[in-house]
């Protein structure tokens, strides 16, 4: 049996995942991080994006987080997400719609447009789509 670490994913609303994992892949602000058991203590901020958890036994699960923090302690990974979802709960059509809306809003650059907010919305929509793509890839296997 593979060596595992404990993984905890909580969002401001509820606890999303809590269990043993062989590998956790998350989107940090400086790039994707792969966290295996025995990783050095680490503290980082998360970007909107997918979190891939290889559970004990090899089964994979994908989550979406809209940003937050990630802490690694020896053999414990804690993810404090602003909001988190299981990838299967993501709505592809809605994400695509949101991306298009955000892009259009950015292009138009209307007078009362909140530029920073539109950028964040775009980033979140793209991250959701990325999560869904990962989920599709996983299912294709």
């Amino acid at each position: 049996m593979a060596i595992t670490l404990h993984c905890d994913i909580v969002s401001a609303e509820k606890s999303i995942f809590n269990g043993r994992a062989e590998l956790v892949v998350a989107a940090g602000v400086l790039g994707d991080l792969g966290l295996a058991p025995g990783h050095a203590p680490l503290l980082t901020e998360l970007q909107p994006g997918p979190i891939r958890v290889v559970k004990q036994g090899g089964e994979e699960e994908i989550f979406y987080v809209s940003g937050g923090f990630l802490e690694v302690q020896p053999n414990v990974v804690s993810i404090l997400a602003d909001s988190a979802l299981r990838a299967v709960d993501l709505d592809e059509a809605a994400a695509e719609q949101a991306r298009q809306n955000a892009e259009r809003a950015l292009k138009e650059k209307g007078s009362e447009l909140d530029y920073a907010r539109a950028t964040i919305e775009l980033a979140e929509a793209v991250a959701k789509l990325r999560t869904l793509e990962q989920l599709r890839r996983k299912n294709a296997h």
């Binding site: 940090g28 400086l30 203590p41 680490l42 503290l43 980082t44 901020e45 923090f69």
Partner: peptide, 17 residues
Amino acid sequence: HWDYLYEPDAKDLLDKL
């Protein structure tokens, strides 16, 4: 005596967290 690895850097991260 251990310390974290910080990404991006300790100050920003701790301020926010």
